[in-house]
Amino acid sequence: MNTNAIKTKLIYPFVKVPNGKALSGLTPREGSSEKFKKYVIFGHQRCGSSLLISALKAHPNIKSFSELFTPNYITFNNHGYDNYSLPLLKLRNKENSRFLENVIFNKQDKKCQAVGFKVFPDQIKATNFQDIWNRSRMGIAVNLFLKNWVQVINE
């Protein structure tokens, strides 16, 4: 066995965390806060939502997730979150609102000002998104639309 292997333990109890360190989004800590804005980015493929998520993720006081409602896996795109965790996938598929509240919108570092994710139309249709929206008390909705520039040039 490789003695240099990273030791992991389970927190929340689904997410493997290197060296037993708690992740800010999963384990309430001393000085943690629930005073942050919740946001959702609504978009279509190729509309720039990944660029916006990357820009938000670069901000030290914003926690940004990718596509949380893809059918066969969860695209957290955040360090320490397992995109292929079967227990988290089952929780998300069975209880969307509980998944968001306990995994995504759990207590954050005091400096955190906003936490959110993006969603596409096919993912909205596959979930009871109205219920998710109401229960999670989302504060900010960003709608991204992509103009067909080829059509504009030809007009």
Rank of each mutant, 00 (worst) to 15 (best):
T3N: 12
N4C: 02
A5I: 06
I6A: 10
K9F: 09
L10F: 06
L10C: 04
I11K: 00
Y12V: 06
P13G: 14
P13M: 06
P13V: 07
K16G: 02
K16L: 01
P18F: 03
N19L: 06
G20N: 11
A22L: 13
A22N: 13
A22D: 15
S24K: 01
G25V: 06
P28K: 11
R29E: 12
E30A: 01
E30T: 00
S32P: 15
S33I: 04
F36A: 13
K37I: 08
K38W: 04
V40W: 12
F42M: 05
G43R: 09
R46H: 11
C47F: 04
C47R: 03
S49T: 13
S49H: 10
S49P: 09
L52K: 12
I53F: 09
S54V: 03
S54K: 05
A55D: 12
L56T: 00
L56C: 04
A58I: 04
H59K: 06
H59C: 06
P60L: 08
P60S: 09
N61I: 03
N61M: 03
N61F: 04
I62V: 14
K63H: 01
K63T: 05
F65C: 11
F65G: 08
F65P: 08
E67H: 08
L68C: 09
T70V: 15
I74L: 13
I74A: 07
T75K: 15
F76V: 05
N77C: 09
H79V: 12
G80C: 02
Y81N: 01
D82R: 09
N83F: 08
L86Q: 10
L86G: 08
P87V: 02
L89F: 12
L91K: 11
K94C: 04
K94N: 11
E95D: 15
E95A: 15
S97N: 05
R98I: 13
L100T: 02
N102S: 07
I104P: 00
F105Y: 15
F105W: 14
K107W: 05
Q108P: 12
Q108E: 02
K110V: 00
K110Y: 01
Q113D: 06
A114R: 00
A114Y: 01
G116R: 00
F117P: 00
